[in-house]
Amino acid sequence: MSNAEKILVVEDDLLTLRILNFILKKEGYAVSSAKNGLDAIERMNVIQPDLVITDVMLPLKSGLEVTSYCKDHFSHIPVIVLSALGEEEGTVTRAFKLGADDFVAKPFNPNEFLLRVKRLLMKKEVRIAI
């Protein structure tokens, strides 16, 4: 599994975190998780993931701060921002302005979510190859 693409999942809701971990591990990804924004930034520096998936509402540092940090320090790492339905007004625009590569509203369709993950990881590989 050492060749598996590394995904950092940042989510403070335990059920959502378990679902995301299950879905991604089932696809063969190496998943690391963080329950707050500060832990996410620390883990990002250690594991240098291939993809970051972050909720917007997090303790200590928000998902938007995580996105901003990732893009400032690891601009090649794609970021998917998650947000509960109804929290999107203005958040989507802010997330994209900070460099987010995709935005997914919760609750989400697992199959559609996986397609978005795979698409971003393929794009990342193409950028690295060029």
Rank of each mutant, 00 (worst) to 15 (best):
L51P: 13
I53Y: 07
A100V: 09
A105D: 06
G90T: 05
M44E: 09
I41L: 04
I7G: 09
G90I: 00
L14W: 07
V9H: 04
F103Q: 02
K26Q: 12
R119K: 13
R43T: 12
P49Y: 06
M57V: 14
N21Y: 03
R127K: 15
Y69P: 03
R43H: 10
L15P: 04
K26H: 12
D39R: 10
E27F: 11
A30C: 10
D13R: 08
L85M: 08
P110C: 08
E65V: 04
T16I: 15
L51E: 07
L58R: 00
K25W: 01
D72W: 00
I23A: 03
M1T: 14
I7V: 14
K71A: 01
A84P: 08
K6P: 08
A84L: 06
K71C: 01
A129S: 11
H73E: 09
F22Q: 14
L14K: 12
L114H: 03
N45V: 10
N109L: 10
I41K: 02
F96V: 03
V56M: 06
F103R: 04
E112R: 12
V126F: 11
N21H: 10
T91K: 07
I19V: 15
G99A: 01
V92R: 12
C70H: 01
L14V: 14
P49E: 06
A34C: 09
V31L: 05
D101W: 01
F74L: 08
V81C: 05
E5L: 14
R127A: 10
I80K: 00
S2C: 09
L24D: 10
A105S: 13
I128M: 11
F103I: 07
L17F: 00
L114G: 00
R94E: 14
P78L: 01
I47H: 08
A34G: 04
E42I: 08
V9W: 10
A30F: 08
I23R: 07
I41V: 06
S32E: 13
F96L: 13
D72I: 00
S83R: 02
E27S: 11
E42A: 13
R18F: 09
A105L: 15
T91S: 11
E125I: 09
I130R: 14
V81L: 01
V126T: 10
L14Q: 15
L8E: 00
R116H: 12
M44P: 07
V56E: 03
L82G: 05
S32D: 14
K97A: 13
A30E: 14
T54N: 02
L60I: 11
G28E: 07
L85S: 08
I47F: 01
Y69S: 00
D13C: 05
K61C: 02
D55V: 07
S32F: 15
L38G: 02
R127L: 14
N21A: 12
E88C: 00
R43E: 14
L98Y: 02
I23S: 05
I19E: 11
P59D: 03
F113V: 09
S68Q: 09
M44F: 01
A40M: 00
